[in-house]
C-alpha cells in the first residue's frame, strides 16, 4: 500500500553485458561473450569465441532487442559478423546512448526457461522461474517465492511447475540438472539481497544446454539514475 501511495522511484536499466556481469558475480551461469566497439572488433572477438556466433546491439537503454531487430543469429564467419555488426551499429538511435556490439557463441538447446527477480507491491522482492519460449505467456507455468530463498525453496519451485516433462530426457538431450537450476534461483536471490537497488532482473531465455541452464540474455533494472 505504501509502495503505491509513494511516488514510484525512477529506475534505469543496465546493458545486456552489464546485466550479465552483475548477475554472474552472484553465480548466475552466463555463456562466454565479448564486447566490441567496431565491426572489425566484433569479427576479431568472434574468431576467438568460435563460430557460429550471435551478434546483438548492446547499450544501457536497449531493452527490446528482438522487437527492434537488433539480434543476428547464426553468423558463420568473420565476414558475416562484420556485416551484421556494421548494420547493428548503424541501427542505433540517439536515444540508445553509448552502444557496442555483443558477440557470443550460438547456444543450442531445445528447452527454454525464464527466471528472474521482481518487486511486488505487497510482498517485496520475489524470485521466479517458469517455462520460457514464445508461448511462455500463454502457458503461464511459473513459480514464485519471496527473497531470500533457501535451497529447499528452489527445489520446491521446480516441483511446482506443471510442465515436469521438460525436466526429463528431451529430444535427445539429457535430463535437466535440477541442482544447477536451483543454483541459478539461489544465485538470483543472493543478487537481490546483495544489491538493494535492484528492482527487477530477467533471464530470458535461460536455455538448457546439455542439461545445464545458461542465461543467453539478461536485463537488470536498478533504482535511481545511472
Amino acid at each position: 500500500m505504501t509502495a503505491r501511495s509513494a511516488s514510484a522511484p525512477s529506475t534505469h536499466t543496465l546493458s545486456e553485458h552489464a546485466s550479465k556481469e552483475l548477475l554472474a558475480g552472484h553465480g548466475v551461469p552466463i555463456a562466454d561473450e565479448a564486447i566490441a566497439a567496431t565491426a572489425d572488433g566484433a569479427a576479431t572477438a568472434a574468431d576467438e569465441l568460435g563460430y557460429p556466433v550471435v551478434a546483438k546491439l548492446c547499450g544501457d537503454s536497449i531493452a527490446h532487442k528482438t522487437e527492434r531487430g537488433l539480434v543476428r543469429l547464426g553468423l558463420g564467419d568473420a565476414d558475416a559478423v562484420r556485416a551484421a555488426a556494421t548494420e547493428l551499429l548503424a541501427a542505433a538511435t540517439a536515444d540508445d546512448g553509448d552502444v557496442s556490439v555483443l558477440v557470443a557463441p550460438m547456444v543450442n538447446g531445445s528447452r527454454e526457461l525464464i527466471a528472474g527477480l521482481a518487486r511486488d507491491d505487497q510482498f517485496g522482492m520475489t524470485v521466479m522461474v517458469g517455462v520460457g519460449g514464445v508461448l511462455a505467456e500463454a502457458i503461464a507455468d511459473v513459480s514464485v517465492r519471496l527473497v531470500p530463498i533457501e535451497r529447499v525453496d528452489a527445489e520446491e519451485m521446480l516441483d511446482d511447475l506443471a510442465t515436469q516433462m521438460l525436466f526429463g530426457p528431451f529430444r535427445g538431450e539429457p535430463p535437466v540438472d535440477r541442482d544447477a537450476l536451483c543454483d541459478v534461483l539461489v544465485a538470483l536471490s543472493r543478487a537481490a539481497m546483495a544489491e538493494p537497488r535492484l528492482v527487477s532482473a530477467d533471464l530470458n531465455p535461460l536455455i538448457i544446454v546439455d542439461g545445464r541452464p545458461i542465461a543467453v540474455d539478461a536485463l537488470v533494472e536498478l533504482e535511481g539514475q545511472p
Partner: peptide, 12 residues
Amino acid sequence: TDDRVFDGMCRQ
C-alpha cells in the same frame, strides 16, 4: 494481489 506471488508465499 498477484496470485502467483501469494501462492508462492503460502508454500514458502
